[in-house]
Design a protein around this nucleic acid. Structure first.
Ligand SMILES: [Mn+2]
Ligand SMILES: [Mn+2]
Ligand SMILES: [Zn+2]
Ligand SMILES: [Zn+2]
Lengths: 153, 153
DNA sequence: AATCTTGTTGAGAATCAATCGCAATAAGCG
DNA sequence: CGCTTATTGCGATTGATTCTCAACAAGATT
């Protein structure tokens, strides 16, 4: 993981009278080693499978800190589940999600971003953040005709 | 509530070998009397405050039926909570959500919808449904300078 | 380096939403 | 009116997240 990230987080902690602990650093390291969306359970499993003896409670307690520090966001996942993704050093993107095979496509369209801002202006709304998830069928699943599908909406 | 909705739902039930019960009808009636996003807890409270003696389990069991029948969707709410909204007879719309006062703006922009379809085509993706939530500050809250805010992201 | 203050940790209990199991009930059909 | 079987209510259960609290340790102070 990047030194820069660790420094950014430590700085955030100190600025808010919190402490830099090995647990927090270890969790953060895993978050940035995971290049996909994940939930706390997955993250905890990974930490447990390694030597670390970090408690579940600490993982749950750390996530909101990462979010507030601007390093991680809560993002799109199966509806109703809390899912995270690291964003520090990444560009903003939106998602397509195949309801049949679970495939996830990340995309970024400049025209779309601009259009959203424009629409907000019409409503006098000040956008800070947005989340767009398009559900449907990926190229593969679209041709192999639809059947059941484990990721029902 | 509209007779038409009840008929549509009854028809869906019969078509699938399920039964039309007074409980299901009562829950559906409340869902369509509620003109905003809601979670199961709210819905159950409303039902309980009225004469009805419908169990929580029945409410939880009914929601997926309404969704499958195309009368209701799971939609945007505080991230991580399961929130519903009735859609039968309503046009598709997206949401802006004020993180300070909780105000919700529903909007529909044709250009935005078309652009999304276009982007999907580029990825060979077959969109079926999408969910766009823009978080930020509403007109009012934007001028009254930002402070805390009970609806943190 | 030793000491002090106070934020943090781990473990398990507690909480909360959602689901389940089952006996009693009642929808739908002949 | 009966028969079949889906549905209900209730309480128990699961699963995720939060809380409690005593032991610990980060970071400031001397
Ligand atoms: Mn992503
Ligand atoms: Mn809406
Ligand atoms: Zn697919
Ligand atoms: Zn507002």
């Amino acid at each position: 993981m990047n030194r820069e990230i660790e420094r950014a987080f430590s700085s955030y902690l100190r600025k808010n009278g919190m402490r830099v602990t090995p647990e927090r650093k270890a969790i953060l390291r895993e978050v940035f080693a995971l290049h996909r969306h994940f939930d706390v359970e997955e993250l905890f499993d990974i930490l447990r499978r390694k030597k670390t003896r970090i408690s579940q409670a600490s993982v749950y307690r750390s996530m909101p800190l990462f979010v507030k520090a601007g390093l991680v966001i809560r993002t799109a996942g199966a509806v109703g589940k809390v899912v995270y993704e690291h964003v520090y050093g990444h560009e903003h993107h939106d998602h397509m999600f195949c309801v049949k095979c679970g495939k996830q496509i990340e995309f970024n369209d400049d025209k779309l971003e601009k259009l959203q801002v424009e629409i907000c202006r019409k409503y006098g709304f000040n956008p800070e953040y947005h989340n767009l998830e398009i559900d449907g069928l990926c190229k593969n699943c679209a041709k192999n005709k639809r059947t059941g599908g484990k990721y029902e909406i």
